[in-house]
Design a protein around this nucleic acid. Structure first.
Lengths: 216, 216
DNA sequence: ACAAAAGTGTTGTTACTACACCCATGG
DNA sequence: CCATGGGTGTAGTAACAACACTTTTGT
């Protein structure tokens, strides 16, 4: 059981890792996880292990990522591990143990086992889903301005995003709605920003037929 | 280890199942599979188990589908199983054991355990990939006319597909190419059909940015 | 007044669907 | 010469990026 927990922090996508104190891979950084015990499902197990590192109520979304099995993936006995992708909204800073910290996904330190591949697979899964679903709800705070949402998308996707077009795309798809409130401008002035929220906070596919849609 | 092996047969999407002779789920239909043994990867294992049911050289594509873990999914001890999706091209009819046969995915018989959900998850994964990748290569014979390819897409997607537009979409994306050959018309006459093939026979994502593409 | 930040209107492009039309063969 | 099946040409449409323009604030 392994968890790839991602969060946008300081304008970059970060993953939660802990530093190994023992061999193998002493001083390398590893994904949180642990063994599956009798009677629990994979989801229950991953949440149980996450509890040791972070307040799991902060995890807004969880999905199965992959199961890895290569006999050489661990130096000792072969271990089969199922990895999950978890997302934490921006703005909360869960307290974590001393050996645990967040690392920019685009500047990973030395990682243990095959964890680097799993982190990158998680990042890629997130990027794909940002394009055709409302999964942004799991990265964004409950309410936000479009400028804030734009920064989240930029960090997660790794390329520029226009706030203008982002707004139109997400409103057209019915993913966002206005709260009716406004955010006061900063010290330099500027028009007050409209405050938005995600209409639903559970996964919905918004663009099911990117191509080859049915007739009608 | 479980395998959801799909093939287009007689105009419908079919899955390979075997009939259980013993309890639990006696007389119900189950996915092929077996246990993972020491030293083999999940992929090696699923191919080994498939060999007992079908000539695995016929499996043109294999990908991991999901890992299931619900403690109640089997009546006895809890079993964790990783399911794979396999695709067999149209036109070949692998010899299978007496207890094994193909079943229309849209008219499944009584199935064992949670295998029905896995079959439907496999079908849905295939449908999604048909829209944004070249995965048709694994369902189609090496060469085919557009009318034949259209029937494969209709069977797999479950809705009508226009041969006219299918051709243009797949040619524009660089997925198909003409072989230069023609197919003689049937007894009722008609213009000879052009024979096509897939340019590549390994998975390629052809529509990576269905939305929110990078600037440029 | 002017800079700064947010939001709107408009245009052009692309990838698609739909449908009319044209082509090549067998009877 | 016409039915049959295959292929092409051409609108029409929806979703998007790009960018100029307008609105609302602070100094």
């Amino acid at each position: 059981m392994l968890a790839v927990v991602l969060q946008v922090r300081e304008g970059a996508l970060a993953v939660l890792l802990w530093e190994r104190a023992r061999e193998p891979f002493r001083r390398a950084w590893a994904l949180p996880g642990g063994v599956l015990v009798h009677g629990e499902t994979l989801e229950e197990s991953i949440l149980r292990h996450l509890t040791a590192k972070v307040d799991v109520r902060e995890v807004a979304y969880l999905e199965q990522l992959a199961t890895v099995s290569d006999p050489d993936r661990t130096p000792s006995d072969r271990e089969v591990a199922t990895a999950y992708l978890g997302l934490v909204p921006l703005g909360i800073d869960p307290s974590v143990p001393a050996d645990t910290s967040w690392h920019d996904v685009d500047a990973l330190p030395a990682t243990a086992f095959d964890h680097r591949e799993l982190i990158l697979a998680g990042r890629d899964r997130l990027r794909a889903k940002l394009s055709y679903s409302n999964i942004g709800f799991a990265l964004a705070p409950t309410t936000f301005t479009l400028a804030e949402l734009r920064e989240i998308y930029v960090a997660a996707l790794g390329h520029e995003v226009s706030a203008t077009n982002l707004k139109r795309v997400l409103l057209r798809r019915g993913v966002l709605e206005s709260t009716g409130r406004q955010r006061a401008p900063g010290p330099g002035g500027g028009r007050p920003a409209e405050v938005f929220r995600f209409r639903r906070r559970s996964l919905e596919i918004t663009d099911p037929f990117a191509a080859l849609r049915p007739p009608g």
